[in-house]
Nucleic acid binder design. Structure first.
Length: 426
RNA sequence: GGAACGGUGGCUGAGUGGUUGAAAGCGGCACCCUGCUAAGGUGUUAAUCGGGUUUGUUCCGGUUCGAGGGUUCGAAUCCCUCCCGUUCCGCCA
């Protein structure tokens, strides 16, 4: 959330920002309510002040106190009852107001996001018909979708043999890479309370929810370890001399994907996947530089894997509520008909928006608590990165070359060969 | 799941109805002492919202002792519900 005072004092800016983000927030209603609320609030506070004064005043008999107190109490209650609905409506609108936006973000919808760079690897020109990741991986005995459908339903998958090893290799490589930049590895809980889900921008329940909620319990399967990583710092006043706090988590991520009806083939959109996620808590003035560093790390990982990609500066209409600025990496996926770009990473600078909601603070030079800045970014997200990897590194015979940087994590193996007969591994 | 005991400021920890926003200690900060270090001395040190203001580290007021309700003229303190923690028991990888 934003600073309440700022919102009122910069109403035009906030209103314009909501429009740029193509969000539907009844902002002017909020301003109205807020004005009424303030008037009432002041009356309530005045009444309370009188009550407090009465309590402290000496030389009154118990009867006198009781008599005067009861009168004050009643009028206070009336005022409070008028205030409550105003305050709660104002609050619910207030919580929906999105973060401000960096001037660098193009104004517009998803399609208006700008390509601002490309990876080091060139798109391959195959002299054969490219296969998609399902064919490649099933033929190599790396993937079993049928068994997963039987066991868990659509949107799940088994990684088998070299598929399983490849995931572990990619995760470990990405982890080692970001650790060189000072990120501390963290394994987090896979479940989190509603409050944390909401605080990090996920909707735990209802139709708009994209996450799994455990029935009758205040627990949810995490949609990303960002939730639990950020949660470590919630409600804390941190020692800024340790900033920036850089952590990298590895976890399974669970998404119900109810909002998307489109049944994307294969493992592009799934209910469960593994992801290595970076999270940083820092001073507001450090955020931009760290955001660039995180983007660079993401690019380095995909460059090292030899996967062609483009870098997008995300348009206002496609920013999450918490993001002030966001970069996505989209990898080239040649197995799709004619090939196309698919999102593989995303890094957001949330400024102090997320921290304000979750009360992540530090002390400034004057010893006053201030809200920290938070950032997050994907180091590697397995299904999608794996699709890009196998499709870009496929050979005419259906074998898959393993990028050099992964070979040490694959027991020195340099390529994955297709099985002679389909389905043999399962 | 059952039982007992707890949840107070950056931390530890007093406080069972009326100047208690909260003793004390630690930590932090400032100053003093000190050849250096260590030790010592004095003072200071919660957050948040609103109003006022010569926009100002100055004043006034509200709220906050896990959360939410209730009792009361008055609640950290009494009652109810919920959440969380510790310990013991049960179950179990």
């Amino acid at each position: 959330m934003l600073d309440r005072r700022f919102v009122v004092e910069h109403a035009d800016q906030v209103r314009k920002n909501i429009a740029n983000r193509q969000m539907d927030v009844p902002f002017d209603r909020f301003l109205e309510l807020e004005e009424e609320r303030k008037v009432l609030q002041q009356q309530v506070e005045e009444q309370r002040a009188q009550m407090n004064e009465l309590t402290k005043k000496s030389g009154l008999s118990v009867e006198e106190r009781r008599e005067q107190g009861q009168v004050l109490k009643k009028s206070l209650k009336d005022l409070e009852e008028r205030l409550a609905p105003l305050a709660s409506e104002a609050e619910s609108i207030f919580m929906r107001i999105p973060n401000l936006t960096d001037d660098a973000s193009p104004v517009g919808e998803e399609a208006d996001s700008e390509t601002i760079g490309y990876g080091a690897a060139e798109k391959q020109e195959f002299d054969f018909t490219a296969q998609d990741h399902i064919q490649l991986m099933e033929n190599a005995g790396m993937l079993n979708l049928e068994a997963a459908a039987k066991v868990s339903g659509s949107g799940f998958y088994y990684l088998v043999g070299d598929g399983a090893l490849l995931e572990l290799a990619m995760m470990r490589f990405a982890l080692d890479h970001v650790m060189k930049s000072g990120f501390t590895p963290v394994l987090t809980p896979d479940l989190a309370r509603d409050k944390l889900m909401e605080g990090t921008g996920f909707v735990p329940r209802g139709n708009e929810s994209n996450t799994y909620h455990l029935e009758d319990m205040d627990l949810n399967l995490i949609a990303t370890s960002e939730i639990t990583l950020i949660g470590m710092f919630a409600d804390e006043i941190l020692d800024a001399s340790n900033f920036p706090l850089k952590v990298v988590g590895q976890s399974h991520c669970f998404r119900s994907e109810r909002a998307h009806g489109s049944a994307t083939r294969g493992i592009y959109r799934v209910h469960q996947f593994s992801k290595t996620e970076m999270v940083v808590v820092c001073l507001p003035e450090q955020a931009e530089e760290i955001h660039m560093e995180m983007r660079k790390l993401e690019q380095e990982i995909f460059d090292a894997l030899g996967i062609p990609y483009r870098v997008l500066e995300i348009a206002t209409g496609d920013l999450g509520a918490a993001a002030y600025r966001k970069f996505d990496l989209e990898a080239w996926m040649p197995g799709r008909q004619g090939g196309s770009w698919g999102e593989v990473t995303s890094t957001s600078n949330c400024t102090d928006f997320q921290a304000r909601r979750l009360k992540i603070r530090y002390r400034d030079e004057d010893g006053k608590p201030k809200y920290a800045a938070t950032l997050n970014g994907t180091a590697i997200s397995i299904c999608r990165a794996m699709i890009a990897l196998v499709e870009n590194h496929q050979q005419a015979d259906g074998s898959i070359k393993i990028p050099e940087v992964l070979q040490p994590y694959m027991n020195g193996k340099t390529e994955i060969k297709p099985l002679k007969e389909k389905g043999q591994a399962a």
